[in-house]
């Protein structure tokens, strides 16, 4: 069992949580993820490390409540425990020698973008962060990003309730077109990563994306997480999660993410009926 040592609600459906996991905390690098099982009946879900402390022996992650597992997780409080936490998994994000880089974090993807941008800045890159959200309420970690040594922080919302009104691809295009970036990294919903990659392709700016296929074991044993990159099948959990955004088959990724849509609805509906929070 892994004890919950920290919990903070970032928006209506987004939570930050920390668990005591001293062995894992010693090894994490930006861009890696953990597999978590809430309880004995739980499924194994991947979540990215958003922060960690080797000295204090904890790791943190930020998650959006989207279905049964994240719903159950959102009910845990400090002092409760989750059944399993495994990691750190996946290849760490490449952060060295990037020069000028734009990091795009869309929605809850900002949670993953945060440690990545921090690690890149620490490694000497000149980092511009573009945060995107549907509205101000859904914007997360803006203060944390503002405290990083960034070249610039650009906030975009669909309705203009915070920062500029528009999509993250608008400032990304500006940066790519003007030759102000050598590299881009996009983290968020598949559709956003796809459009970011399309945007930078025209300007030949190498673009990394952090893919989020459905996973089971997270260690290369099942192949549930397979994605097509440059026409080849790769396993998201051990070959990724980072891949060349210009070579990823996003249509396939998005289709594969929907494979259990019906079952997911059924499971969460059943759980919500018996759940006191009525969310």
């Amino acid at each position: 069992m892994f004890e919950v040592v920290h919990k903070r609600q970032l928006s209506d459906a987004v939570f930050e949580m920390g668990v005591a996991a001293p062995r894992i905390a010693r090894k994490v690098a930006a861009g890696q993820f953990l597999m978590l099982r809430v309880d004995e009946d739980g499924e194994r879900i991947p979540l990215t490390f958003s922060d960690w402390s080797a000295e204090e022996g904890w790791v943190r992650f930020i998650f959006m409540r989207v279905g049964k597992s994240t719903h159950k997780l959102s009910h845990l409080e400090v002092g409760d425990a989750v059944a399993d936490v495994v990691g750190p998994l996946g290849v760490p994000t490449h952060t060295e020698d990037l020069g000028r880089v734009a990091v795009v974090g869309g929605g809850v993807g900002a949670a993953v973008a945060y440690p990545v941008a921090r690690a890149m800045a620490e490694a000497g890159a000149e980092v511009t962060v573009i945060l995107g959200a549907r509205n101000a309420e859904l914007l997360i970690l803006a203060d944390e990003f503002a405290a990083l040594p960034l070249a610039e922080l650009i906030v975009m919302t669909d309705d203009g309730s915070a920062g500029e009104k528009g999509l993250v691809t608008a400032p990304l295009k500006r940066l790519a077109e003007s030759g102000s970036i050598d590299h881009a990294m996009a983290i968020g919903p598949a559709i956003m990563m796809k459009f970011c990659a399309e945007t930078t392709r025209a300007f030949r700016v190498p673009t990394t994306v952090s893919l989020n296929p459905i996973m089971v074991d997270g260690t290369g044993m099942c192949g549930a997480c397979r994605v097509s990159v440059a026409g080849e099948t790769r396993f998201g959990c051990v070959d990724g999660p980072d891949f060349d955004g210009h070579a990823v088959d996003f249509e396939e990724l998005m289709s594969r993410q929907r494979v259990y849509a019906e079952e997911e609805r059924e499971a969460d509906a059943e759980y919500s009926r018996g759940c006191a929070c009525h969310l």
Binding site: D41, E263, E264
Partner: peptide, 14 residues
């Protein structure tokens, strides 16, 4: 993951 007990167990299978 005991998918045959879905949705009591959380993991689905086709």
């Amino acid at each position: 993951m005991r998918a045959y007990e879905f949705p009591h167990a959380d993991t689905p299978v086709a």
